[in-house]
Design a protein around this nucleic acid. Structure first.
Length: 567
RNA sequence: CGGAAUGUAGCGCAGUCUGGUAGCGUACUAAGUUCGGGACUUAGGGGUCGGAGGUUCAAAUCCUCUCAUUCCGACCA
């Protein structure tokens, strides 16, 4: 491709709204432009990279036996009403009406559509298993789109759905996808981890997330140094050892005056104890009721675990005003003793010992609180985040570490959740009607490209992994007025194309500096420069973008050397 | 939706406090000079100052409302 006839509008300054390195670089390298919040134009250079990822995805999925389809982006509300998600999805679902006032949505995902397709056309176990996938534009009206294409409202996603006759078969389908995903992200040149998302579940549904490791990732991943356990911190279980010996002698409750000491830190300092000797009491509001949660003073609440434990849809910390209005209590002095609403406590507080808690009385705390003696605990559970000195939930050894990750893929065993709700059945060998056992498997295509850039860049620009680079080679001709040089450049350009190399030839009449800066910014794996060495001794300069090491070679060896470097 | 901020040329910003000629950098156009790391000189084009209403002789500037965007929290590929 000749740069002069292409369209890569590079810019020096990154836009003010770009936070993330990958977002800045994608805008600066002329890959994307914002049209509206969370909605982007994809420009040719960006599209090339996206297509590369798509083709890797296609290739690996096809190898794994999946079959490509293309489903509508606009879906009728009736299907969503069958699964109950028309109401569940709320504002995230972009709803539209047609001229007859019929309701539709712009598809955020396609479980309903695919299940409908399959239930209509697959009637026998003989037609199973089947795994259908598509690469589609989806729309989710996210509350807060950010990071450019990384978390857009409109985005391209590969989604696959497997249908099996038996549970064992569904597990095989799942494993095949796990293998395919490993291959895909490997080929995209990413450092990633497959992370178990609900490892403890026995026999039930389970899922696995693919995290690209990056400082700026939105997810925190916990992993074990001793075994291959890795999990999203949201879901990583905290092992609880029962029957811990008492370390504190039994003492009587004692009320202490703690004027102005509200935070755990302040109270612990004032009473000369550690935060671990204190209990935090937090009031949460759900759609059903208000509850109090107890957790050790030095720990972090995991609201997802709490939400799952309570089996509620929404959960949020109650405001100070609400707490005062309904309980007549002031935050900072809350505690379980005499609490009027249901109290739940983290497993850890079952230790046979006493704690410091709020007294439910302004400016007072209680010492020597024994939860089993002094409070009514409705339930104990795992409500906190795993921490570095916790044992590994898988092997039990100590050595949990943390890193941040960008979720680029998710594989999920759905079971019969959708097939039951939508009455999608087939006849098994015995002529009996059975529900399909499903799996669904997503990959964020644009996000994968963004994650690759997030992971591969330097202060000059992008450093493309070879397999997803928009082109392999950036051919730079420095002096447009030198017709010999331009002719020789064009000849090499054609020879490289002939040899199957994808070349971007910068034939623009621009200053030398600009051409070099653009080449570094666009970050193609190899830069070939026609400059002084060509004029003086018929040599070209080859620079590896990653290391920025330059080497000179005679022009007649160039094709050979370039193809070798790229292989 | 809760908290915070910002809307002025394609992009990045100043000007707003203290009302009085619409500015800077970059990008763009033309000519000339340059040519191994975002060149220089000269001459140009480009603005309903987010929108509506109000105060005033006079509003980018003050007031009210509104829209949009961004940042921090809960959702997700």
């Amino acid at each position: 491709m000749k740069y002069s006839q292409y369209f890569i509008p590079t810019i020096k300054d990154s836009p003010a709204d770009a936070e993330l390195t990958s977002h800045k670089l994608m805008v600066r390298a002329g890959m994307i432009r914002k049209l509206a919040a969370g909605i982007y134009n994809i420009l040719p250079f960006g599209l090339k990279a996206i297509r590369k990822v798509e083709n890797i995805v296609r290739d690996e999925l096809n190898k794994a036996g999946a079959v490509e389809v293309f489903l509508p982006s606009i879906q009728p509300s009736s299907l969503w009403e069958e699964t109950g998600r028309w109401l569940q999805y709320d504002l995230e679902l972009l709803r539209v009406k047609d001229r007859h006032d019929r309701e539709f949505c712009y598809g955020p995902t396609h479980e309903e559509v695919i299940t409908d397709l399959v239930r209509n056309d697959i009637k026998s176990y003989k037609q199973l298993p089947v795994n259908l996938y598509q690469i589609q534009t989806k729309f989710r009206d996210e509350i807060r789109p950010r990071f450019g294409i990384m978390r857009a409202r409109e985005f391209t996603m590969k989604d696959a759905y497997s249908f099996d006759a038996t549970d064992a078969g569904a597990n095989i389908s799942f494993e095949k996808m796990v293998q395919a995903y490993d291959n895909i992200f490997q080929r995209c040149g990413l450092q990633f981890r497959g992370v178990d998302a609900d490892s403890g579940a026995i026999g039930g549904d389970f899922s696995r997330e693919y995290m690209v490791l990056a400082e700026s990732g939105e997810n925190e991943v916990a992993y074990c140094n001793s075994c291959d356990y890795a999990a999203n911190v949201e879901k990583a279980k905290v092992l609880y050892k029962e029957n811990i010996e008492s370390t504190v002698p039994e003492e009587q409750l004692e009320e202490v005056h703690t004027p102005g000491y509200k935070s755990i830190e302040e109270v612990a300092n004032f009473l000369k104890v550690t935060p671990a000797d204190c209990v935090k009491c937090l009031i949460y509001e759900t759609e059903e009721e208000m509850i109090a949660l107890l957790i050790r003073g030095d720990r972090q609440v995991n609201e997802i675990k709490l939400k799952n434990f309570l089996g509620v849809e929404t959960i949020a910390l109650a405001s100070d005003e609400l707490i005062y209005k309904t309980l007549q209590l002031t935050t900072g002095y809350l505690g379980p003793v005499g609490m009027k609403i249901s109290v739940y406590a983290d497993n850890e507080l079952q230790e046979n010992r006493t704690f410091v808690t709020g007294a439910n009385k302004d400016e007072f705390h209680l010492k020597n609180v024994d939860l089993s003696r002094d409070a009514q605990i409705k339930g104990y559970g795992d409500f906190r985040n795993i921490e570095a000195n916790d044992p590994c939930p898988s092997c039990g050894k100590h050595g949990i570490n943390f890193c941040r990750g960008i979720e680029v893929g998710h594989v999920f065993k759905l079971g019969t959740k959708y097939s039951e709700k939508m009455n999608a059945t087939f006849l098994d060998q015995n002529g009996k009607s059975q529900h399909f056992i499903m799996g669904c498997y997503g990959i964020g295509i644009g996000r994968t490209v963004a994650a690759a850039i997030e992971q591969n860049n330097d202060d000059k620009g992008i450093i493309w992994p070879k397999e997803i680079a928009p082109f392999h080679v950036h051919l730079v001709s420095l002096f447009n007025k030198d017709s010999d040089l331009m002719e020789a450049s064009e000849k090499l350009y054609n020879e490289l194309i002939e040899a199957g190399v994808e070349v971007l030839w910068d034939d623009r009449n621009e200053s030398v500096g600009k051409k070099f800066k653009d080449a570094d910014l666009l970050g193609l794996p190899l830069q070939i420069v026609f400059g002084k060495p060509f004029q003086e001794e018929k040599q070209v300069e080859i620079t590896e973008r990653k290391t920025l090491t330059k080497e000179k070679f005679p022009l007649n060896k160039a094709v050979e050397i370039i193809t070798k470097k790229l292989s």
